[in-house]
Amino acid sequence: MSELDLGHVLREIDDEVRARRASGDFPPGMERDLELVFARFAPATLTGDDLEALVEAADRAAFIQSDPPTASRIPAVSILKRVERKLLGWFFRFLAQQMTTFAGVTVQALRQMAHRIETLEEATPAANPALMSLARQTALVPPLAAAVDAIGPVDGRVLVSHDDVVDRFPNAYATTDDVAEHLLDVDDDALAGLLLAGITDRAPLGTQVSLVERAARVLRRGGRIAIVASSVAAWGAANPVEADLAPGRPLHPETWAHLLVEHGFADVRVAPGDGQSIITATR
């Protein structure tokens, strides 16, 4: 056994971070600024689920270069490479032309698919308020009180997706914006709690994952998250129209739990309910 109390060391590190944040040494948004600078140099495919950016990246990579570089630290090797390039140039050009043709056609096909997906997305229920209204008349009522209890007392700002429960926390607010979009504007470690109820079931998978990613960023250490998630069967039974037309579908509680663990949350718990589960975790 080690005499070293590493748990104690970690708590001291946490205390140090908290004190530096309070003093302004670690200013709000510092991590995000660093991330944004790196994003300038990272491939577009790393910066989210942006299909258009991916197609652009594929387009840029579609041209196959047939002239290999010939530089070398050893001059003789460089000469050798140039000779080889001259001798084999016809062969590589022949291959490169065929590969470029294939890549070009593939990118064209991707563009068409992206266009068709965009058209389909525009035809989803979100663009049809009357149908959505009909569907939501039969929506499951989220167990908000239980979700509030699951978050427990928190000292700090809490963002809730339902304004009905704003007064259940001393320092809570609700947003009328799309929550995933709203979280983009929230500073790192700015929140002590986050309650997501009734907004995750219909969201596309990319948005559901983004919600967890963004929650991990905006919740401070020790902050609590509660997600009310419908079971797939109960949601489909209660909202058949919406279930068929929604861009996404509810995730199983185990999937939420997995996503939360993947994003560094601890103490992840699932409280199963009648058709809806509450998944809680601590940042």
Partner: peptide, 13 residues
């Protein structure tokens, strides 16, 4: 137990 294991890699931490 041979080193400090951080639960996340937040730059501040």
């Amino acid at each position: 137990y041979g080193g400090v294991l951080l639960p996340d890699k937040d730059p501040a931490t």
